[in-house]
Design a protein around this nucleic acid. Sequence first.
DNA 1: AAGTGGTCTAGACCACATA
DNA 2: ATGTGGTCTAGACCACTTC
Lengths: 231, 231
Amino acid sequence: MTATLDQRIRGDISARIHSGEWPPGTRIPYETELAAHYGCARATVSKAMETLARAGLIERRRKAGSFVARPHSQSAVLEVPDLASVAAAKGETYRWQRTRRAALAAGEAPDIAGIAGAALAVEGVHFADDLPFAIEERWISLAAVPGCADEDFADTAPGTWLLGHVPWTHARHRIRAVAASAAEARRLAIRPGTACLSLERWTWRARDYVTYVRQLFPGDRHDLIADFDPS
Amino acid sequence: MTATLDQRIRGDISARIHSGEWPPGTRIPYETELAAHYGCARATVSKAMETLARAGLIERRRKAGSFVARPHSQSAVLEVPDLASVAAAKGETYRWQRTRRAALAAGEAPDIAGIAGAALAVEGVHFADDLPFAIEERWISLAAVPGCADEDFADTAPGTWLLGHVPWTHARHRIRAVAASAAEARRLAIRPGTACLSLERWTWRARDYVTYVRQLFPGDRHDLIADFDPS
DNA sequence: AAGTGGTCTAGACCACATA
DNA sequence: ATGTGGTCTAGACCACTTC
C-alpha cells in the first residue's frame, strides 16, 4: 500500500495529467516547490520527473520548468512472443515441424537475409491444435551462431533455441499483408491468395547479422497486439 | 564528447554485453565494486544499473547481484506515425478526403468502438500522390472530446486534429491481414480480395473510450516497421 | 546472519535557456 | 544575470534474499 515517495510523486502528477486537470502545455511546479511540498530532497523529485519525461508524459526545459507534453506520434510497444508461448496461453497444443534444413556456403543465403557468409537455412511449420498457423523460413549466420551447426531443429523451433543461445541483439521487424502463394497456401492448408500477415525480423549483434526470419500467418488465425501505456 | 559518468558506465557495460564478453547469466560486478572502479558514489552506479535494468539488458537481484539478462520475448517499439508525415517523409503529396461525417446518438456507434454514448462518425480516404493508400473509419466519443462537434474534418484528417486536442491517453492497436471487401476495394482502387493490412486503434483516457479507428492499407502500399534497440 | 540492491538525504556545482 | 534542470556526492537506513 505504502509506495515509495518516488512512486507517489509520479502517481500524483500523472493522475492530474490523465484527469485533464493539467492539460498539455501546463507548467508543472518547479522541482524545488515539489520538494518543499513533499518535504523531501530535490533529487527524489528529480528522479520522479525524469521517469515521467522518459515515459513521454512531460517535457523538461532548463530555466523554463517542466510541462505536460502534447501527444506527439503514436508509438506503441509491440510484443512479438515466442509462438510456442502464444499457443500455450490459449490452451492449445503446440507443435513445430521442420521441413527443411540445409547448410549453405558463403553467398548462398538470399540477399534479403543480409548474411554474407555461410549460413544455416531452416524451414518449417508451426501447428496449434494440429492446425498449421504459421510457416517459417529462416537463415542463421554460422559465423554469428556457431553452435547452431550441431542442432537439427527437428523438434525445437529455431526461434525458441536462439532465444537461449544468442547474446543480446538488436532487431528490426517489418509487418506486411500479402497474398499466400500456391506453395505457401498448400503448407498452411488455405486457399491460394488468402490474405496473410507477413512478419519479417532481422536480428543482428554489433553490425553482424545473426538471423533473418519470415513468418507467414493466415489472416484469420493470428493478429498482433501493441499497447501504449504511459506509466 | 565527454559524456556523463552515468552514460559512460552504461556504455561500458552494454558494450561488454553486446560484444559477448559477458554472456547472458554473467554476474556483473557489485555496485560497490563498480563505484570503487569509477571512483564515484554508489548512487551514480545504481542509477546506471537501474536504466540498464529498465531497458531489459540486466536483471538485478537483492543479495545475489546484477546479471546479464537472457533475451525473453521479442518486444519492439512500433511507431505508428501520422499518415501525413509518412507521405511527407517519402516526398509524396498528401491529401485527405472525407467521405462521411455523421453525429450518432447514444448506442448507435458499433460495439467494437466501445463508445456507449453519443459519437461522431467520420470516414475518409488518405491519398499519397493522388493514389488512395488508406481508408479510415473512425468514431469519436462526444463526451470525451466535446470540441470535435465543431469540426467538419473536411480538410484535416481527424487523427491529426485529435493529436493536438486530446489530453494524454492510453491506446491499444490490433494488426491483422484481411481481404478487401468489394466496397473497400472500390475506394482503394484495388481488386476485391486483395490482401490488406488492417490497423485498429482503441484510444481511451481513464476508462473512458475516446476514439476507435480502423485503417485499411493495400498490402503493397504500406508496411509497418518496428525496432528493438536496447540502449 | 550477512550482504546485496532500493531508496532517500542535504548539499553542491555546472550548463544552459530564458528573461 | 538569473534560475532552472542535470548531475553527482558521501552517507544513511531499510528490505529482501540468499547463504
